[in-house]
Design a protein around this nucleic acid. Structure first.
Lengths: 193, 193
DNA sequence: CGAAAATTTGACATGACTCAACTGGAGTGG
DNA sequence: CCACTCCAGTTGAGTCATGTCAAATTTTCG
C-alpha cells in the first residue's frame, strides 16, 4: 500500500505512534495520475498538498508567448503544491502535470491544518521541509544570477544525476531557463571536449 | 525600547501572554550596526536569526569575478539570516551588511529552538513567515525567467515603492540580476516615454 | 571640503533567443 | 505488430538583450 510509504517517510524523521499513524491513514487519499495528466491547472485553487509515492511531476508557469517555465520537479518521496494558491486560496497561475504516470497521496488544506494544530510534530516537520525547499530555491536563484547556461547545466547534472536521466532535455532546459535549442548547442560543444 | 517593537510584531499575528513576552525579552538581544557594518561574512557560521527594528540590510553573494549579487533586503519588521548556514551550521558563502545604520534584535539558534519546542505558537508563526518568503522567492525566480531587465525593474518599483526610494540604483541592479550600467540605460530609455 | 561611491555614456563583445528546416525514435491506434 | 504520427533533438543564420570596459560627471557622507 502507498500509504505505508508515506508513514515510513514520516517515521524516518519524526517517529510516529499508533494514533498518529491512524490519522495519516485517514487523512491522506491515493490518486493515480497518467502521463500528461494534471493535478493543478491555471485559474484553479490549489486545494491539496501532494506527496509523490512513485513517478515524476513538474510544476510550471506559462508566459505571454506560451512558453512553459519549469519551477519544480517532484519524484519519489517529495512534496509538491502551489504554496501561494494553497494558503491564500486564490486562483493559481501554475500547472502541475505528470511527466511519468504517477501514484500520489494528497491531503486537503483543512486536514493539514488539523494536523498542524493537534500535533506539534507535524508542524515542526513541515517547517523543516519548507526550510529546505527555501534554501534550494535560494541557491537556484543565485545560480541563475551567477552562472551561464552551460555552467548551470553542468551543475544540474551533478546535483540531480538520477533526475537528469529520467528527464527529456526539453524539460531540463525549461528548468534551467534556457531554450531547448540552446541546450542542444551546449551539449554539442561539451561533447567536443 | 526596541524589544517592544518585536513584541508588538508578534502580538499582531499570535497574541502573546505575559510569560511568552518575558521569554522574548530574555532571549532576544539588541545590536546596533553602523552603515557598511556586517552581521555575517563569508566562511562564518550564521549563528543568529535577526529581526530588523530600524534601518536596512542586504544579503549578498560574491562570485568568482568579485561581483556582488543581492539576494535579499531586510528593513523594519523583517527577518534575515542565511538559513542554510544557520540550520546546518556550516560556513556561509554569504554576507549580510547594513546599507543604513540599523537597530536589530537577534536570537541564538539554541534559544530559537527552545521557543519552537516549548511554544507551538512560535513554530506556527515561523512556519508561516518562511512560507511567505518561499513564495516571494519563487515569484522572483519566475520573474527572472520570464521578464526582461526593464520589465523586472518596473515590477520592482511597483512592488517595493518605499524600498526603491531608499536604495541606490546599484543595489537595485544587483538584486534584479543586471549591471548598474544596463540599469542606467533602462532608466534613460524609460525617461524618454 | 574631499574622498569614495554612484551614475551616466559610448563603443564593442557575447550569451542566448528566434525561426525554420531536417532527423530519428518513441508511443499509439488500427 | 506494423505504419504512422508526433515530439524531442539538432543545426544554421541572423538578431537582440545584456555585459564589459573605460572615462567623464555627479552625488553622498564622513
Amino acid at each position: 500500500m502507498s500509504i505505508e510509504k508515506l508513514i515510513a517517510y514520516f517515521d524516518r524523521y519524526i517517529p510516529l505512534n499508533k494514533k498518529e499513524k491512524e490519522e495519516i491513514v485517514s487523512l491522506f487519499f491515493e490518486n493515480n495520475i497518467k502521463r500528461k495528466g494534471f493535478i493543478l491547472q491555471e485559474n484553479e485553487v490549489c486545494k491539496h498538498h501532494t506527496f509523490v509515492v512513485s513517478g515524476l511531476l513538474k510544476m510550471y508557469a506559462v508566459d505571454r508567448s506560451g512558453t512553459k517555465h519549469n519551477i519544480q520537479f517532484a519524484s519519489e518521496e517529495e512534496w509538491i503544491n502551489d504554496m501561494g494558491s494553497f494558503h491564500l486560496e486564490n486562483p493559481s497561475r501554475l500547472y502541475i502535470e505528470a511527466i511519468e504516470s504517477s501514484v500520489i497521496l494528497q491531503i486537503k488544506k483543512t486536514d493539514l491544518i488539523y494536523l498542524f494544530t493537534h500535533y506539534r510534530k507535524f508542524n515542526i516537520d513541515f517547517r523543516v521541509i519548507i526550510e529546505n525547499k527555501f534554501m534550494e530555491m535560494q541557491n537556484r536563484l543565485l545560480q541563475n544570477l551567477i552562472y551561464t547556461g552551460e555552467e548551470r547545466y553542468l551543475l544540474f547534472l551533478r546535483q540531480y544525476p538520477t533526475l537528469s536521466n529520467r528527464l527529456p532535455n526539453t524539460q531540463i532546459a525549461s528548468y534551467l531557463g534556457i531554450t531547448p535549442e540552446f541546450l542542444s548547442k551546449i551539449r554539442h560543444s561539451l561533447s567536443k571536449k
